[in-house]
């Protein structure tokens, strides 16, 4: 039985949640203040998920087994009401390109997007992912939902987003904050709390510093996944939003 004094937290995600899992496994974060579970899988199985009976459910036995395999309690489906909060990590919701698009428009003299258009683009981007609908449905059940989208890519050469939206490379934190504000607003409309990417991890406008890249990322040509250090930052921000005072909890325990 989970301790009633601790918030029950489920980290739900695709392969990007591995960074958080590794941060926990490597004890880069203090999880003593929460009852923590992970329920996720590499993104290729996400298309076999559906929202049914107020739960995220695999549509086939194979997928259910795959998700159960990586869950501490071998859950074959995710009933959000078993938790106080669900944290979406990655979960197919990519950010690099939409940020590049909006930042480029904000910083270009020959481009312009009205605030309304920016919101429409972000809204459409969010609603384009099935997982976002899961998040919205969970929030509607009055279960707290936090969403940490896929972090910005590590910059590669050539880079699609950087090549098309070159001005975005010059974006500063204040520029990014403006875009995060839009994302937060749109998510907020659906009762979802955004965990934005920390400024300290960002470089070149809308890319993640290479120090947060997953191991051997160049060799593996993997410019999207991040390491445990990055996962730790995400998890710290989650705890901060949840107002889990780790010191206090450890002292009382």
């Amino acid at each position: 039985m989970p301790s009633p004094s601790k918030p029950r937290l489920c980290v739900f995600g695709d392969s990007h949640y591995a960074a958080v899992k590794r941060a926990v496994d490597e004890q880069l974060v203090d999880t003593s203040g929460v009852d923590l579970e992970f329920w996720g899988h590499a993104g290729n199985r996400f298309r076999f998920l559906e929202w049914k009976d107020d739960c995220i459910r695999p549509i086939d036995d194979f997928t259910a087994k795959r998700f159960a395999k990586f869950n501490e309690k071998q859950r074959r489906f995710l009933d959000p009401r078993d938790f106080d909060a669900i944290v979406f990590v990655g979960s197919r919701l990519r950010t690099t390109r939409v940020f590049a698009l909006l930042l480029d428009a904000r910083l270009s003299d020959d481009k312009f997007l009205s605030q309304q258009l920016e919101h429409e683009i972000v809204r459409h981007h969010l609603e384009g992912e099935l997982t976002y609908h899961f998040a919205r449905n969970i929030a509607a059940l009055n279960v707290r939902v936090l969403f940490s989208p896929v972090s910005f890519d590590i910059k590669s050469t050539p880079n699609d987003a950087a090549d098309v939206y070159a001005k975005a490379l010059a974006a500063k934190e204040t520029d990014r904050r403006g875009v995060w504000k839009i994302v937060a607003h749109e998510m907020g409309q659906d009762g979802i709390e955004l965990i934005p990417q920390r400024a300290v991890t960002v470089t070149d406008g809308c890319f993640t510093k290479a120090k947060y890249a997953t191991d051997r990322y160049v060799e593996r040509n993997d410019y999207t996944h991040k390491n445990a250090a990055y996962g730790a930052l995400v998890f710290q921000d989650v705890l901060k939003v949840l107002k889990v005072d780790q010191d206090q909890i450890s002292k009382s325990a």
């Binding site: 698009l101 428009a105 429409e120 683009i121 459409h124």
Partner: peptide, 13 residues
């Protein structure tokens, strides 16, 4: 239309 604006909203703008 800017990339990212869904097709069904182009005419509205």
């Amino acid at each position: 239309a800017p990339e990212g604006l869904p097709d069904h909203r182009h005419a509205d703008y």
